[in-house]
Design a protein around this nucleic acid. Sequence first.
DNA 1: AGTCGTGGTCAATAATTTATTCTTGATTCA
DNA 2: TGAATCAAGAATAAATTATTGACCACGACT
Lengths: 282, 282
Amino acid sequence: MSPLVKIRAERDQMSAIERRIADFMLDNAHLLRDYSSQQLADALQISQSSVVKFSQKLGFKGYPDLKYSVGEAVARASDGQVKTAARSTRAAARESLAETLWQSKSRAEEETRLINDAEKLSEIASMLGRAGRVFCIGLGDDGSAAQAFAQRLALLGTLTVHHADPVRMTATSSSAERGDVLMVFSEQGQQAALNQLSRQFRERHGKVISVTRHTSNPLRAHADATLLVSAHDERSHIQPLLYQSALQHLLDQVFVLMCDGDRLEQLNTNLEHIEHLLDPKL
Amino acid sequence: MSPLVKIRAERDQMSAIERRIADFMLDNAHLLRDYSSQQLADALQISQSSVVKFSQKLGFKGYPDLKYSVGEAVARASDGQVKTAARSTRAAARESLAETLWQSKSRAEEETRLINDAEKLSEIASMLGRAGRVFCIGLGDDGSAAQAFAQRLALLGTLTVHHADPVRMTATSSSAERGDVLMVFSEQGQQAALNQLSRQFRERHGKVISVTRHTSNPLRAHADATLLVSAHDERSHIQPLLYQSALQHLLDQVFVLMCDGDRLEQLNTNLEHIEHLLDPKL
DNA sequence: AGTCGTGGTCAATAATTTATTCTTGATTCA
DNA sequence: TGAATCAAGAATAAATTATTGACCACGACT
């Protein structure tokens, strides 16, 4: 996987200095060839060891290994540019909104995929599958996602409750028991009310799954399992769309993983019921 | 120029040892990443300095520079292959759920893009922008999408109401006036209640935008403008995911199209307000 | 407040890798 | 034969990279 995508994905939970390095590399990937770790450190006014540590944290053997990898990525990328640029400039200019927006979503999806490995998703899916009751909560856009997911779970035969209001949720969750699961949707993970709710839920021996942006945040820190989303765009009206899209894809995966034998049957039964419910109304 | 081409070109006038190095690089270009100059020398039973001199003779700053350059060349060369080779055999089988599901979504998006041309979307965006009031309605999954879209519109400063219940909606819409817009979300477009609501709305000189699957259906037939979604999968638990994704993308496009000067400003103001609303709760 | 632990940074330094120098030996040509 | 040239390797210098240990900041917990 491209190191640049990886850097982008991890950027959010980096320290200030690491983020400086990340930004520099993202901005000047093509110049990296001429930088030793020391020169890079000087350029950013940081220590050389920080650069090395940065490289290792990302999973590379060391700085030269990262550099080599970035070189490959740049080569690939600029190669691709040649191909598309050759497809006449007009074609690129007339690229529809649909296409560019979808590409942005794809990027977000890729970043998100990198930070949620398959085992973790399976684990979460089975956690939800085994759960006695599942509670979903989230505010604003997160609330929509939470609600939609709750409905999907319900179709699979899992007893699921959705709340938009943390206060009422508190009342409900005070009856939480071992085996119950709480899914908390909070992009920034900074909602005091939700964090408190989570703590309370865990005290009653319920499991908490957090769904947040890939930053270090208190909600995520205290959850039994975490779903992480990475999505970036400098335009404030685009970024939420990317976040929602990546989040939705993550939830869809969990949903699909839960669709095994029994539950799939249950789902089909429910879908039939719904169809019957609507059909006669013609 | 690719270093590999250069090496091949000069190979004929090299000394025996240089030729050994050249051959090794040409044969194992993709493995070079893991070789230091010393390791390469050991592998070929020659001295490390010979490797360095070889690099310099070819015009590179030194061995790492040559190595970097070979890395680029390999990346470029294998880039094209990867795209086609990855399609076949085991690679496809071991592709993750995330990837295959996203590919399905991409297909659905593409199909959907083809049946909603850009002009139509612009037209719908401006229709919503000019609207006095906007009403959104839908049942089940369609309801979630309708609700989320309504909230986005509201952030843009457009007076928007969401309903999940057609009966209550009837009451509201009886006050519809010229300039109002009704968006009806109904995958199959067969909901009698919604169709009747649409008719009633048009009688009161409101505009109706239908959002349905790309089939011939009564709802779509009687709308002033239509958004169409195409998404197919033989698996009953997958298809709704694709439908939702393609639908969401379509709505996102309309939203983005509406984000011009004034409204974008309004959006940013609202987002700030929301942030303020949440922050102090820490 | 206190302090324990954690995580991040840097300076110093160790380790590794790369580049240069210098010597040797082989070859050529006057 | 002997001077000149050049490739190659050994030794070594230089550079780059990696690790260590000390320090500080911050949050959690008492």
